[in-house]
């Protein structure tokens, strides 16, 4: 169920994993304040995985990757993760996949409906996206302090990867 993403490049690699122990900022002895959802949960009703049609490999489009030709399952495709709802809004991740490689990560849904959410999205999502693509922005390498949106992002990402069979 839990998998690590292996995005291996010649000089750089980024991996995102999901672990199910709590963040240190919320140890049980301190509890979580009432009134706010503690965890983000997938919304089954809006989960709309859109994997590419399961056409036989032979009829699938040719791989676009420039790497050595992978096996037939290497057709380029897009897999969309579930919408994950946080207190700041919805988060959803879409992957472009070539063979067993993730070639792009996008976020069709991010919480922009509130100013606070927009600020989190602006900072967190581009960083996570660039991390997943191993392409860093020049100024900020990573962010300390935000968790909700990045957790939801990873949750949708994980589901998309599981669905993609990677």
């Amino acid at each position: 169920m839990r998998r690590a993403i292996l995005a291996v490049a010649a000089t750089t690699a980024i991996v995102v994993g999901l672990l199910h122990y709590k963040t240190s900022s919320a140890p049980r002895q301190f509890s979580v304040a009432a009134g706010a959802p503690q965890t983000s949960t997938p919304r089954p009703g809006s989960t709309a995985p859109t994997a590419a049609p399961s056409t036989p490999p032979a009829s699938a489009p040719p791989p676009t990757s420039s790497t050595p030709s992978p096996p037939p399952a290497s057709a380029s495709r897009t897999v969309t993760g579930p919408v994950v709802t946080t207190r700041f809004g919805d988060v959803q991740v879409a992957l472009s996949i070539s063979g067993q490689r993730v070639t792009d990560v996008r976020a069709p849904q991010l919480p922009y409906d509130r100013a606070r959410s927009a600020s989190i999205s602006q900072y967190v999502a581009p960083v996570l996206r660039s991390e997943a693509l191993a392409a860093q922005s020049a100024q900020i390498d990573t962010i300390s302090g935000a968790t909700y949106t990045s957790d939801a992002y990873a949750q949708s990402l994980q589901a998309a990867l599981t669905q993609a069979g990677i």
Binding site: L6, V8, A9, A10, T11, T12, A13, I14, V15, V16, G17, L18, L19, H20, Y21, K22, T23, A26, Q38, T39, L128, E131, A134, Q136, D141, T142, T147, S150, D151, Y153, A154, Q155
Partner: peptide, 19 residues
């Protein structure tokens, strides 16, 4: 609650070593 862990490696390691 799940925690996302990202690992960003900047060494020029051979892909197999990296993996």
């Amino acid at each position: 609650m799940g925690t996302a862990i990202g690992i960003d490696i900047r060494d020029g390691l051979p892909p197999d070593d990296l993996a």
